[in-house]
């Protein structure tokens, strides 16, 4: 989980330009204020980095980054 969180935060800071200080597990997507193309871009980046699809619709405004980390971790874990 820690590795997933670090990678996700790296995508958000390096690719999306969000200051690292704003990235915490309880940060919501509403806090990040990403436009719809940025959310698609994040979904694409998650797919490239983790090999799992988290549809941009799952990145809803009320969703916390920690929850997305858990979703990625669950989807990436071998069944």
């Amino acid at each position: 989980m820690i590795a997933v969180q670090e990678s996700l935060f790296a995508i958000l800071s390096e690719k999306m330009g969000i200051p690292s200080a704003e990235l915490r597990p309880d940060t919501t997507f509403e806090d990040l204020d990403l436009d719809s193309l940025a959310l698609i871009e994040l979904s694409v980046s998650i797919q490239k980095s983790f090999g799992v699809v988290v549809d941009e619709m799952e990145l809803s405004p009320e969703r916390r980054l920690g929850e997305v980390v858990a979703v990625i971790d669950a989807k990436a874990r071998p069944a």
């Binding site: 193309l37 940025a38 698609i40 871009e41 979904s43 694409v44 980046s45 797919q47």
Partner: peptide, 14 residues
């Protein structure tokens, strides 16, 4: 469109 964004980023279109 996802392919495009993966290759070029959304900012190019905007």
């Amino acid at each position: 469109k996802r392919d495009f964004i993966a290759a070029f980023g959304g900012e190019r279109f905007v």
